[in-house]
């Protein structure tokens, strides 16, 4: 009973983080048509900036988080302009670009702080109790922030003008450009949102689990799996895909064993790619 409860809570937390990272990844994929493999490294940098500001410089942790999100988000502008835009129509070059970015970011952290595993102190230390259920506050927080952010992003995309323009570019970049939409501005906005949410998710995850310079590699693969599962261009799809992946990753290691669980997850993803390349809810991009 207790095991199921713990796994359910874990599943929810993992889902929230996967969904946030996958949304950023998917946003860049649908709007710019690029597979940004460096997204995991951005997530890692977000966690380390928060860590550096709060632990090394002694700033308030919430302020550190805010600065980290703003800084990393703003760096998205540079990323889009200098790293993504020149390679938008060259997927192979884009992959190499991402590798270069990952190497620079991961090595920079490794050289300055060392490759050791660290932990970011909890934002709200303590344990949350409701009846017979007790969960770390940190997990509740991660889930709550994830849910709020998700709602905000959905609102942004569905209800605001810039969100509508994003959808238009995602569906037909050329047509959108003909209608006078500034596609570069939309791409920059998408990258900023993606980087900011990655920084936030990285910081939250670093309090629950731990952080090291390579923490982004795993989450990147999970995000890609969510995007493949859900298909591109559907926020609701990413939600469901994220929940499926979150719960698979929370339950399978406990129910069977980690490596068989991994094989099953991969088989599901491969199956979906081969049978329904558009994903469960999406439309084909290329």
């Amino acid at each position: 009973m207790n095991m199921i409860l713990t796994s359910t809570v874990n599943g929810l937390v993992l889902s929230a983080i996967y969904i946030l990272v996958a949304l950023g990844f998917g946003l860049q994929l649908s709007i710019m048509g690029i597979f940004n493999f460096a997204h995991g490294a951005v997530y890692m940098i977000g966690a380390y900036v928060t860590y550096g500001l709060s632990v090394a410089l002694g700033l308030n942790q919430w302020v550190s988080l805010l600065i980290s999100v703003i800084l990393v988000g703003a760096s998205g502008l540079l990323l889009e302009k200098f790293c993504f835009r020149p390679f938008q129509s060259k997927p192979t070059h884009m992959i190499v670009m991402a590798i270069a970015l990952i190497m620079i970011l991961e090595t920079a952290v490794e050289v300055t702080l060392g490759g050791v595993t660290r932990a970011l102190p909890a934002f709200v230390p303590g344990i949350f109790k409701a009846g017979s259920i007790s969960v770390d506050n940190e997990r509740v927080l991660a889930f709550a922030i994830g849910a709020v952010l998700l709602a905000a992003l959905t609102f942004l995309i569905q209800k605001t003008k810039i969100g509508q323009q994003m959808l238009a570019v995602a569906q037909d970049a050329e047509g959108a450009a003909l209608q006078g939409i500034d596609t570069h501005r939309i791409a920059a906005t998408a990258t900023v949102i993606a980087c900011a949410t990655a920084a936030l998710s990285g910081s939250l995850m670093a309090t629950i689990f731990s952080m090291n310079p390579f923490m982004g590699d795993n989450i990147l693969l999970k995000a890609i799996q969510v995007v493949i599962l859900s298909g591109i261009g559907s926020i609701g799809g990413v939600l469901v895909g994220g929940l499926i992946m979150g719960f698979l990753n929370a339950f399978l290691p406990v129910l069977i064993n980690a490596s068989v669980g991994e094989v099953i997850t991969i088989l599901i993803v491969l199956g979906i790619l081969l049978i329904r390349p558009k994903g469960l809810f999406g439309y084909e991009l290329f």
Partner: peptide
């Protein structure tokens, strides 16, 4: 052969990870 282009690349990525996972099993 059912997938082309960037979708093939994605399939290859997960095939690679899958082989590693099988190696674990």
């Amino acid at each position: 052969t059912r997938v082309r282009g960037i979708y093939f690349t994605m399939v290859s990525l997960f095939f690679g990870i899958g082989v590693l996972a099988v190696n674990q099993v």
